[in-house]
Structure formats: C-alpha cells, structure tokens
C-alpha cells in the first residue's frame, strides 16, 4: 500500500477526456515523478490531489483518508503540502513572516483565534522558523520583503514554508518551470538534500527530463490522460512507448 493511492480516476471537461482510468501508487519515502507531454493531464491529476478538482469517477486516498471533496486547508492539515508552478508566497510580508505563518498553521491547526498573543513572544514558532531558514540557507534574508527575492529564492522560501509543516507528502508542480539553468540546478540540489535528510515522500509533476531523471525513484509517464508506463528511471529512458508519446510515431 502506498501513502497516496489513486484508483481508476477519470475526469472529463465537456467533450475532452482529460484523465481516463489513472491508477497510481506513491510509496512512502520515495520520489515519484509524473511526466508526460503537454496536455497529457498532469496538472489535472495534481488538482485532483489538492481539493481543487473532483474527478468524475475513481478515488484518491491518502493514508486511508479520501482527498475528494475536502478543502485545500483540510488536505494540508492531513499532511500534504504543495509547491506551486510559480512560487506562491506572501509577497507583501517578510521572509521570516512567511515561514512563521506555516509554523502557526502546523501548530494551531486551520483556525485559532489568539488576538492577545504577540508573534515575537511565541518562542517555539520563532525558533522553528529560524531553523527552517537556516536549513534552506536563507537566514541572512530574514527581514527582506519576500517580493524582492529572486525567483530561485522565492522557490527556496516556498520550500521552507512546506518543510516547516513536516509534511508526509510533498506535491511539486513543475518546480523548475521557467527557471534559468543555474536556478534549476540549485532547486534540484535543494530537493535532493531535503530528500536525503528528511526522507519526505514527494510527488513531482514535471516535463523537464533533466530534473526528473536526477531526482525520481520511480516515474509514471502520462499520455493523453492515461498512464502508459510506470518504472524506474533507467528503464523509462529508452522505453519505446515513452519515445512515441514524446516524439510521435516515426513516419
């Protein structure tokens, strides 16, 4: 049994069959990549994990809880954190405040009214947030406005926010999309470090092969809404079906 079990998931948008009979199992402690050409249904599939879309048929189970029909904040509280394609951070707040919000959400749950406490006196939160910034080597940018960070640093900050919550499963939606090569490599190193130190289970949606092959333990290839192959990276590389999906059939 994997930590995330996807069974017979199908989703239609009008006449378009975005997903048909997707079966997928993400094993605990592994990095599972979902790849595929544009329009293969990768993002639709991810949206079914985070409470944004409800599939027409099938089930998505996380540690025995169904993720269908519950709100994003409830999914997060179950232990699923998400990294967005373009880094989503609280850009008007400081780097430190960004991380503290994640720490508060982890400690206090989805809602707790505490208007008479003072943020800077919550020593456990302050210490944890500082530790997280040290971990992603951003502590010297602690008091910067996060809007003024570089793209790569925004990604680091977003990762710090996710890690502050000790997630059981980390969902990454094209974590290196639109990044320069150097930033991409930095992000890969960061993800590798995280994986090595914490052993967090990750599910990555990606179409950059370089990223996928340097990170993933297991790869599922999606084409036209259906998984066509699932295997270890070495076997995926030369697989005829994958080449066909990416390059089309030879004339």
């Amino acid at each position: 049994m994997g930590i995330l079990e996807v069974k017979d998931v199908s989703k239609r948008f009008g006449g378009l069959k975005a997903l048909s009979d997707v079966n997928l199992s993400v094993e605990e402690g592994t990095v599972h990549a979902i790849i595929g050409p544009n329009g293969a249904g990768k993002s639709t599939l991810l949206n079914c994990f985070v409470g944004k879309l409800i599939p027409d048929t099938g089930s998505v189970m996380f540690e025995g809880h169904s993720l269908l029909g519950i709100k994003p904040h409830q999914i997060n509280q179950l232990g699923v954190s998400r990294v967005f394609q373009t880094p989503e951070i609280f850009s008007e707040l400081t780097v430190f405040e960004n991380v503290m919000i994640a720490c508060f959400a982890k400690r206090d749950g989805s809602f707790r009214l505490q208007p008479f406490k003072t943020v800077e006196n919550e020593t456990d939160i302050v210490e944890k947030a500082e530790q997280m910034l040290v971990d992603v080597s951003m502590i010297e940018k602690r008091d910067m406005h996060s809007a003024s960070l570089s793209r790569g640093d925004k990604r680091r900050l977003e990762m710090a926010m996710c890690l502050a919550q000790d997630p059981k499963l980390l969902l990454l939606d094209e974590p290196t999309a639109g990044m320069a090569r150097a930033d991409t490599n930095n992000t890969i190193e960061l993800l590798k470090d995280i994986q090595k130190q914490r052993g967090i289970t990750m599910a990555i949606i990606e179409h950059d092969m370089h990223v996928v092959f340097s990170l993933a333990d297991r790869i599922t290839v999606l084409a036209q809404g259906t998984p066509i192959v699932e295997d270890v990276p070495e076997k995926i590389k030369g697989h005829p079906k994958v080449q066909e999906a990416y390059l089309g059939t030879a004339h």
Partner: peptide, 17 residues
C-alpha cells in the same frame, strides 16, 4: 495580513481563511 497578500497560498498552507 497573509489573507490580504495571498489567500490562495494561505489555504494551501492549512489555514481556513
């Protein structure tokens, strides 16, 4: 203040806004 800057992120951070 987090709600003002990015409610979407806040929801995905586990907070019911």
């Amino acid at each position: 203040r987090a709600i003002k800057t990015n409610q979407n992120r806040l929801n995905y951070t586990g907070v019911h806004s």
